[in-house]
């Protein structure tokens, strides 16, 4: 009997590798959700029940929309875009944390709806990938539209991008800047009045929900960057650039440098956005140098938008840079093995 006759077992030829690390997209999303939940708890303690309602509104909305979409897809026997809810819940959480505490709840629900419907499922359906961060895209489009409805009396305060309160601020001079800090000087905890700097670092009752405690975002964000391997170059370059700009500008106009840094870096719209929106995998570049360009540009644009009183302007900057990502993906490559500098090469014999 030949070996062939004695070996009836046939296996399928499967290409290598044959083992996998075992870390799935769902695990990545769940861990991101966990990190965001810590910030949500902190923000709800600082900003109160309204913060929690915003967050739950966003989460509830994305859950319902996701369920409706996949039920529709199943009913129509179409391929289901996202089987798992994990990334949708992360998007919902980000929407909740990226809304200003002063905004109406229905706006949060509307942003959450647009996030999932248009910028998550819609982008995926049209382009098979997300070019724009869903929450940032939804916020920019919706709040931008609301803001320009000038025929509507409340348009600016509902749109919240150019809030009427902000339009009077003058951040270009030392005096104007100091006078503008009244928003952060109204905080009293445990019977003590916090300085504007302390409030920006620890206890903001104004602005984006996710940035209520700047230090908490910094700590949780840093843990997430290391633990979940977020694109740290974006975070690092954006933070360093923002600090650098704040210092230089502070020196030029001669005001309180620490307060300048705290304001530009720790306002919720920047610190939260940098850690949890600017690192969104799909809409940000892959090559290392491009990530640095992305981070630097993000900080520069945000800084000048802040000076122009568009205090949530980081979101514009992010959308703009998201759109530049396909181009940034074609530049900024590191040198591969065998192409490194002469120093690392031994001469050929």
């Amino acid at each position: 009997m030949t070996v062939e006759e004695r070996s009836p077992m046939q296996f399928e030829g499967i290409r290598p590798p044959h083992i996998h690390m075992g870390f799935s997209k769902d695990e990545l999303m769940l861990k991101t959700f966990l990190m965001l939940s810590i910030i949500a708890i902190g923000s709800s303690i600082i900003m109160g029940i309204n913060a929690l309602i915003h967050i739950l509104t966003a989460l509830g909305t994305v859950f319902v929309i996701h369920t409706l979409i996949i039920s529709f897809q199943k009913w129509k026997k179409k391929p289901v875009s996202y089987d798992s809810y994990t990334s949708t819940l992360v998007a919902g959480m980000i929407v909740g944390l990226a809304m200003p505490i002063a905004g109406p709840f229905y706006i949060t629900a509307a942003v959450a709806l647009v996030t999932v419907l248009v910028f998550k499922f819609g982008q995926n359906w049209l382009f098979i990938r997300k070019y724009i961060n869903p929450a940032a895209g939804a916020k920019t489009v919706l709040l931008g539209l609301l803001s320009i409805m000038l025929f509507w009396e409340e348009s600016l305060s509902i749109g919240q991008l150019f809030h009427p309160h902000h339009l009077d601020l003058n951040l270009w001079t030392a005096e104007g800047f100091e006078a503008s800090m009244w928003i952060f000087q109204r905080v009293t905890i445990f019977g003590r009045d916090l300085s504007a700097t302390a409030s920006l670092l620890f206890w903001q009752t104004h602005g984006w929900i996710g940035g209520a405690c700047g230090i908490l975002v910094l700590i949780v964000g840093s843990i997430a960057v290391v633990w979940l391997r977020y694109k740290w170059r974006i975070v690092g370059s954006a933070l360093l650039t923002m600090i650098g700009l704040a210092v230089v500008f502070g020196l030029i106009v001669r005001d309180d440098i620490l307060l300048r840094i705290s304001f530009h870096v720790f306002t919720g719209s920047f610190i939260f956005m940098v850690f949890f929106m600017a690192t969104e995998p799909q809409s940000t570049p892959l090559p290392e140098i491009s990530q640095i360009i992305f981070g630097v540009a993000l900080a520069v644009i945000t800084f000048f938008l802040q000076l122009l009183n568009v205090l949530g302007g980081s979101i514009f900057a992010l959308v703009l840079l998201n759109l530049a990502t396909p181009f940034l993906d074609k530049i900024g490559f590191r040198k591969p093995y065998g192409f490194k500098s002469k120093k690392q090469r031994r001469s050929l014999r």
Partner: peptide, 9 residues
């Protein structure tokens, strides 16, 4: 197990 082929027989 990273680079080797799987056998068909």
């Amino acid at each position: 197990i990273f680079m080797g082929p799987s056998l068909e027989s």
